[in-house]
Amino acid sequence: MTENIITIKNLNAAYQEKPVLWHISLDIPKNSCTAIVGPNGAGKSTMIKTMMQLIKPLSGEVKINGSKDKHELKKIAYVPQKGEVNWDFPATVFDVVLMGRYVHKGWIKRPNAKDREMALEALKTMRIEAFKDRQISELSGGQRQRAFLARAIAQDAEIYVMDEPLQGIDVTTENLIIEVIRHLQQSGKTFVIVHHQLDTVGEYFDHAIILNKSLIAAGAVETVFTEENIEKAYREKVN
């Protein structure tokens, strides 16, 4: 019997005054690597933003480790879609990764040697330690994505929620990210990832959530990632 780390019950959510998530109930098992797939406008981003309490749902609830407490959010590291940050900000890659450690810091407290070490470790994991003193804006798209992943790793979270981390990056970075995810999964972490390439779902993930405003299917990849479900989600509405 697998334990569920995220439980969503009867979730209804709207984005910009339009309902995008209807009546969604699902469980995400602990230590899984779950893909969220669905066509554009299916509510994938809204769903993970609701998980992160960035969007308030109309009704229903999201529980993490069986609790609705805001404190549980600290166990989630969120890697946003690209282009949501202020690139003009004077911060080095190391600064950015070190920001991940602030989750565990109170007011005023400065990061200590251990925090720095963990940040450096995360940089090494993502193989960007050579750029640690670079300005974040000077990195290429793939390198930036690695830096944000490194920040999430430095957060030392239980759950990693990512919004299309593989969108528009080079093959080397994609392979590296997948490799790192596998590795972290082995050490007990859970991944929830919005994914847009259907052809790699079976290869990269063990669980899948197929979404188109309402839930089409959720569960182990081999049982839910079927042609029938995909067609159901992606079918163009006639008329």
């Binding site: 959010l73 946003p80 949501e84 940050v85 900000f89 920001m99 602030y102 920040r151 957060q155």
Partner: peptide, 9 residues
């Protein structure tokens, strides 16, 4: 630097 990240933490 990153308003969304700051909200998530």
């Amino acid at each position: 630097f990153d308003p969304v990240f700051s909200r998530t933490i």
